[in-house]
Amino acid sequence: MTQQELTGTGLHGPFSLAADAIDEELVENCPGAYALGFIDYLGRFSITYVGSAGENLKSKLKAHIGTASQFKFRHFAEERLAFEKECEMFHQFLPRGNFLHPSRPHGTDWSCPRCRR
């Protein structure tokens, strides 16, 4: 896995949002957080959507193929950490594709570290 990281997100990437890149970069059955977007005319990663996956980040990203050209990601040891990272990115970047604050995973009472929602 490459260690390429852009300042500001704490995520690895960007990579092409395609099945082969996802298979190459991510491990199976692991929680994680991600950002979707594109490379702007200045060569910066522009975030259009953020999300997280509690069990299988790889399959969640594959479901987004065709919605953006690039992605960044980070694996987490715990689902809660992935959810918290999604919340932090939502507040930091206000991506245009996220209309609502991230929902806590079903069956949890976790709250956002930023706004305590």
Rank of each mutant, 00 (worst) to 15 (best):
Glu88Lys: 01
Phe71Val: 05
Ser59Asn: 06
Ile47Met: 08
Asn98Ile: 04
Ser46Val: 13
Glu28Met: 09
Ile22Asn: 04
Tyr41Pro: 00
Phe71Gly: 05
Ala63Ile: 01
Asp23Gly: 13
Ala68Gly: 12
Ala35Val: 04
Glu25Tyr: 06
Gly32Met: 11
His91Phe: 04
Gly13Lys: 10
Gly66Val: 14
Phe99Leu: 08
Ser59Tyr: 07
Asn29His: 13
Arg80Asn: 02
Ser16Leu: 14
Ala19Val: 08
Gly8Asn: 07
Lys85Gln: 14
His75Ser: 11
Ala21Met: 08
Pro102Val: 03
Glu79Gln: 14
Leu81Tyr: 08
Cys30Tyr: 09
Glu25Trp: 10
Leu6Glu: 15
Asp109Leu: 07
Arg74Thr: 09
Ser46Met: 09
Gly10Tyr: 07
Ser111Leu: 08
Phe15Cys: 02
Glu25Cys: 10
Lys60Cys: 06
Ile22Gln: 08
Cys30Pro: 01
Cys30Asp: 00
Glu84Cys: 05
Lys62Leu: 03
Ala63Arg: 11
Pro105Thr: 06
Ser103Gly: 01
Glu28Cys: 06
Gly107Glu: 01
Phe83His: 05
Leu100Lys: 04
Ser46Tyr: 12
Thr2Cys: 07
Cys30His: 13
Thr2Lys: 10
Gly37His: 08
His91Asn: 00
Cys112Lys: 07
Phe83Pro: 06
Phe38Ser: 15
Asn29Ser: 10
Ile39Thr: 15
Asn29Tyr: 11
Glu88Ser: 02
Met89Val: 03
Asp109Phe: 06
Glu79Lys: 13
Ala21Thr: 13
Pro105Trp: 05
Ala82Cys: 07
Val27Leu: 11
Gly51Lys: 10
Leu26Ser: 03
Gly10Cys: 07
Glu88Leu: 09
Pro31Asp: 03
Leu57Val: 12
Pro31Val: 09
Phe76Asn: 07
Cys115Trp: 10
Lys72Thr: 13
Phe76Ala: 02
Ala53Val: 11
Thr7Leu: 13
Lys58Arg: 15
Phe38Cys: 11
Leu6Asn: 13
Arg117Gly: 10
Phe93Trp: 05
Cys112Asp: 08
